[in-house]
Structure formats: C-alpha cells, structure tokens
C-alpha cells in the first residue's frame, strides 16, 4: 500500500514540479525508467517469496539505472545508441514480464 502511494506521489510530483533535467541527460531518462521498473518488479517478487531486502532493492535500483544509462551513453558515443537502447529494453522487458508472471502465479495461484 505505502509503496503504491509513494509511486503515485512521485509521478504527481514529477508532473507537477517539472524538474529540469540537464539536456545531456535527457535521452537516458526513458531507459532509466525501464531499468528502475525492472528493479521494482524484482523487489515485488522477492517480497512475495519472503526474501525481500531493502538494501538489495535500493542498491539494485540505483545500479540498474546507472548501468542502463551508462550502456546507452556508451552506445551513443560509438554510434549504436539506438540499437543498444533497444537491446536494453528487450532484456529488461523480458525480465519484467517473467517477474510479473511469477508474481501473478503467487498472487492468484494461476
């Protein structure tokens, strides 16, 4: 409950406050969001498995975001930024979906 509220609160804050993102970082924002989503789904699954750990969650969240942004940044420098972001989105997407499936199995037993 509290996490959901926190998430919604964050979205509202982001939309309302319009924090200015440096132009250099702007291309990495969407990929960072996808990476962070992966960490969140992993955390929910761990919670349902009974092995959730807040420190692991925070560290995996931050490192996911940083690594995803770094990979895309590197790709941009090498001229394959678009392809690399596609790769990152595909891999993280697969993980998000299989975690979501695991969560669904656990919650609905189906």
């Amino acid at each position: 409950m509290i996490p959901a509220v926190a998430l919604v609160l964050g979205v509202v804050l982001g939309l309302a406050l319009e924090p200015t993102v440096p132009a250099a970082l702007q291309p990495y924002l969407p990929i960072a969001v996808v990476a962070a989503l992966d960490a969140v789904f992993g955390a929910i699954r761990a919670q349902l498995d009974g092995i959730f750990d807040d420190r692991v969650f925070v560290v995996s969240f931050v490192s996911n975001v940083l690594v995803a942004a770094l990979v895309v940044f590197l790709g941009d420098q090498l001229g394959v930024g678009g392809q690399l972001s596609t790769g990152v989105v595909v891999v993280l997407g697969i993980r998000i979906f299989s975690n979501a499936a695991a969560i669904r199995r656990r919650v609905f037993h189906a």
Binding site: P3, L7, G10, V11, G14, L15, P19, L29, A36
Partner: peptide, 10 residues
Amino acid sequence: LVALGMLTGT
C-alpha cells in the same frame, strides 16, 4: 519509489 515516480513523470 518516489524517485522512480518522479523519474517517470519527468
């Protein structure tokens, strides 16, 4: 999580 929300919103 608030940070993630803000990231998404932004």
